[in-house]
Design a protein around this nucleic acid. Sequence first.
RNA 1: GUGGAUGUAGCUCAGUUGGUUAGAGCGCCGGAUUGUGGAUCCGGAGGUCGCGGGUUCGAAACCCGUCAUCCACCCCA
Length: 418
Amino acid sequence: MIKGIKGVKDILPEETPRWRFIEETARRWAARYGYQEIRIPIFEVTTLFARSIGATTDIVEKEMYTFADRDGTSLTLRPEGTAGTVRAFVEHNRAADPLPQKYFYLGPMFRHERPQAGRLRQFHQFGVEYFGTQDARADIEVMALLWRVLSDLALPDLTLEINSLGTPADRAAYVPILVSFLKSRAARLCANCQRRMETNPLRVLDCKIPECRAATEDAPHLTAHLSPQAKDHFDLVLGGLTALGIPYRLNPRLVRGLDYYCLTAFEITSSHLGAQNAVGAGGRYDGLVEVLGGPNTPAVGFAVGLERISLMLPDQTLPPSAPSVYVASFGSEGGPAGVLLLEQLRRAGVPAQSDYRANTLKAHLRQADRAHCLFAVLLGDDEAKRGSALVRNMKTKVQEDVPLSELPRFFLTAFQAL
RNA sequence: GUGGAUGUAGCUCAGUUGGUUAGAGCGCCGGAUUGUGGAUCCGGAGGUCGCGGGUUCGAAACCCGUCAUCCACCCCA
């Protein structure tokens, strides 16, 4: 038996309604905030990701699905959506069009990791990118949009954590201060953090090991070393969140993994997700457009994991499924009449189904029950002869005789009344 | 890439110190009710016991290997 690829899941019909609901909610809120959909390719030239995400990040170093095209060009399945969106922005010279520009995307991403709860090799993200202003209100808007989507979905126990990574210059000035502090505590740090001290000192602050956290308890905070501009920006962002009634928690240890972030960095976590507790994350990446060959264009954005949302989405949040009619036709005259009726109902816009295997009324009604149909149309030879059918309300069991020609209108009005 | 747990019917799981034709519940199909669903009762279909090797008179069970899934580490959405 040929099986699916490790970490790549089928989304079966039982689950597609919840996915559609999540996607529709995301689209609805994106539209309300004035974001337009962009559809970018699922694969790109490898160097795009290496350059934008950062050559030394885990994603680029060991998690990309990379393969050679026939001419030898190295291609990669997209591990995230920002790189492609920015590439499209630059390639189509969108910066020449009026700014700001606000995009959203929705779709599969690929990372070669060991699967785990809330982590797959093909997973799905909803993300937005706001191009063209450094104004803190853009940061606020993006976070508000994310908060609204997740709140609308009634996801439990969400926390918005926020930090400022400062400007690149701020970080350059801060890192030596942090490193010298870490060196003084090196003995108390785990082996990983000892290594991270060299490769990515900021990450040491985000280590989950209690000993490391204790050792870095009184580490100097980046937020205490912000330039005046960065500090102002951060204060405006926090003030804006408060004004909009969006609760947040300052997390000076929060560091985003991707190279391109600056200033605002945020993450929404939930305690209902197991070890992978981040639902979504984002931040500002003012330098990225330029890095990818475009004009200097500030930008903010976020991405959320749809699998992680789905894991948390309470069933009660889902809207009820669309009402449907079951056609229970049988007999030498009822059978053919049922086939016609099915087609007429469907063409009139009434969802209608039947089971062609069923030969008895009992079998038909069992199917109607199982399919949760609101009505069953009982159509045997007697009914076919007189040109009508019995409409049975599956809940109340009340039956009434309705002429065949009037059935489409009958159901349209019945469904409208729901 | 590392560690741990688990692989028996479509699903959830039993299966005694190794011992005949491998079981249950749910689900599915049919009957009891020759034109009325869900409940009940009865019957039926459905299995390379993950795969390969080994030990043994005999393996679902024990050993080795392998694959897969899940969870965790790493990292991240």
